[in-house]
Amino acid sequence: MLLTKFAPQLFSLLAFAACTLAVVLPSRSELDARVYHRATSELVQSGSVFTIHNVKSGTVVDLSAGDNKTITGWALNGGKNQQWETIWSGNSWNFKSVETGLYLGFTGTAGNATNLTVASTPTGWDIWHDTVNETNYRIFAPNTTVNWDLWDYGNAVSGDPITLWGAWSGIHQTWRFVQV
C-alpha cells in the first residue's frame, strides 16, 4: 500500500538520478572535445623519472612500502617508491616504479572505484591536459572516461587510495609531473 502511494515520486526521483548520471559521465567523444590536447612529449618525456603530484592535496603517487602493491597518495618523502619512469609505447604511456620495476596499472575492469595497483606487465595510459588549467594533467585508462582520482575528493591524508573514476571538474583528478 505504501509503495503504491509513493510510486510516482519514487519513479520521478529515479528518472532524475539517471539523467544526472548521464550528465556526470560524458562519452569519450564529449570528453575529447573538452580537453586541450594529448600529452606526448612536452613536459612528460619518455625515459624520464618523475614524482606525480595531486593538484588538490599535494600528495604524490606512492607505491605502498607495506605490500609493494597498493597505490596511494602520500606526503612526498623522496623515496624511490614515489618515483615513476615514464615510457612512451608509441600509442600510450606506461609508468614504471623506480623502486620495484613493476608497472602502474589496475586489476579487473576500468571503472568507478577501481583501485590502482602494480603488475609485472605494463598498462597503457592516456595523459591529457586538463580543460581548466592546461598545466595540469588527467591520466585516463585508454578509450574510457575514467581517470586517476585521489579518494575522498583529494583528501591530503597519507594513505588515501588512488582509484579510477569518471572524469568531472574535480581538481583532485588532476596531476602535475615533477622531474626527479
Rank of each mutant, 00 (worst) to 15 (best):
S27K: 13
V60D: 12
A17C: 12
P161Y: 03
K80T: 15
N115I: 06
I162L: 00
P8C: 10
V146C: 02
L102K: 14
Q173R: 12
T70H: 05
W151V: 05
S158W: 08
T70M: 06
T100W: 01
R138W: 06
T72L: 02
T86P: 03
E134Q: 14
N147Q: 05
N136H: 13
F11V: 15
L25I: 14
S12V: 03
A7E: 12
V132E: 14
L21F: 07
T4L: 07
G101Q: 00
T117H: 02
L25C: 04
G101K: 00
G108A: 02
L13D: 11
V61M: 10
S48W: 05
F177P: 11
L14Y: 10
N143V: 07
L102M: 01
L150R: 01
A15W: 04
L10W: 02
G78L: 11
Q82M: 05
S57N: 03
Q173W: 06
D149Q: 00
Y103W: 09
N112P: 07
G79H: 11
R34W: 03
G66P: 02
L116M: 06
G124N: 12
G111I: 00
E85R: 13
K80W: 06
N81H: 14
L102V: 00
L63F: 05
N143I: 02
V180W: 01
K96R: 15
N155Y: 01
N112L: 01
Y36E: 15
K56V: 05
Q83L: 09
T107K: 06
W74I: 06
T117Y: 03
I52P: 06
L14A: 11
G79W: 07
G124S: 13
V35S: 09
E134Y: 06
T40S: 07
L104I: 02
F11Y: 10
V132I: 14
L21N: 11
W74P: 09
Y137E: 11
G159R: 01
V55M: 05
S120C: 03
Q45H: 09
L31K: 01
F16V: 14
N136R: 04
S158A: 10
A156L: 04
L13T: 14
A156D: 15
S57G: 15
L3G: 07
D130R: 08
S27I: 11
F177Q: 11
N133I: 11
P142Y: 04
G79C: 08
S89I: 08
H129E: 15
G78I: 12
G124Y: 09
F95Y: 13
R38S: 00
R176S: 13
H172M: 03
H53Y: 13
H37Q: 12
H37N: 12
T109V: 15
K80E: 14
V118S: 01
W125L: 13
H37M: 03
L76S: 14
V44Q: 08
S48R: 14
A17P: 01
W125C: 13
N91F: 07
A65L: 09
S46A: 10
V118G: 05
A18D: 14
L43K: 10
H172E: 14
F95A: 08
N81V: 03
T174A: 13
G159E: 02
G47K: 08
T4Q: 10
S46T: 15
W93F: 15
G79T: 12
E85P: 08
T121I: 08
C19F: 04
W165N: 13
P8R: 09
N94T: 06
L31M: 07
R138C: 12
R28D: 00
